[in-house]
Amino acid sequence: MGQDLLPPLLSAPGVETWAFYILTTLSICLAIAVLADRVVIRSGFILIGVFGTISGIFLLLSAQFLALAQIMIYAVGITLMVVIALMLTNPRLEREQAVVYYDESLPPLAKIFASCKRNLSLWVSVLSFVTLYSALIGENHWPLSDQAVSPDAVKVLGEALVTNYSIPFEFSSVLLLAALMGAVMLAKGESKNRDDDNVAIVDEAKKQENNLALQR
C-alpha cells in the first residue's frame, strides 16, 4: 500500500497476475449484475462495486492519483447522482418487467430469425468485442517501455496540466461550469407553472374550507 511496499510486491512473480484476475473476476461479475438486475436502484448500488474494482486495477497500473479520483468522482459522486435520479424517477421502487414479445404462430425458421432480432443488441456487443479483440491480437507490436512509473506521478500530471495541456484544462473547467448551470436549469424546469399549480391547489383548499365553514 505504501510507496515503499507496492512496487516490490507487484514485481514479485505472479502477484500482479493474481491480483489482476481477482479484480477482473469481481469486476465482470458485478458488471453483469449491473446490467441484469431487475431492481434498477440495486444495480446503481452495484455499480459502486464495479468502480471500486476498476480503481483497484488503476492501482495495479500504478496510477494512484487516478484510482483515488475514480473513487471520489465515479464511485461516490456519479453513482450517488444516478441513485438519487433513480429514486426520483422510480417512486414506487418497482421492478422492471421482463417483457418479451413472442409470436407463437410463426414457422420454426422465422422463429429463429425473430429471436435473433430480439437479441440484436447481444450480437452487436459480441461482435464489438470480437472486433476489438481481433484488432488487439493483430496489432500486438506496441513500443513497450521497461521503465517504471515515477513515484511522483502526481507532480508530472500537475506540471503537464498547467503547461502543455493548459488550454484543454481551461476548457474542461468551462465545460464543467456550463454543465453545472445547464443541469440546474434543466432540473429546475417549469418551477413557475408548478408554483401556479400549487397556488391554485391552495386556493381551492381554502375555498373548500370556507364552504365547509359556511355549511356548518
Binding site: A63, Y74, T89, A160, L175
Partner: peptide, 22 residues
C-alpha cells in the same frame, strides 16, 4: 492526463444526462 479529462467530461455528462432524464 487524458483520463483526467475523461473524468471531467463524464461528470458533466452524468449531471446533464440525469437532469434531462428528470
Amino acid at each position: 492526463l487524458f483520463v483526467i479529462f475523461v473524468l471531467t467530461v463524464a461528470a458533466a455528462e452524468a449531471a446533464v444526462g440525469l437532469a434531462v432524464v428528470l
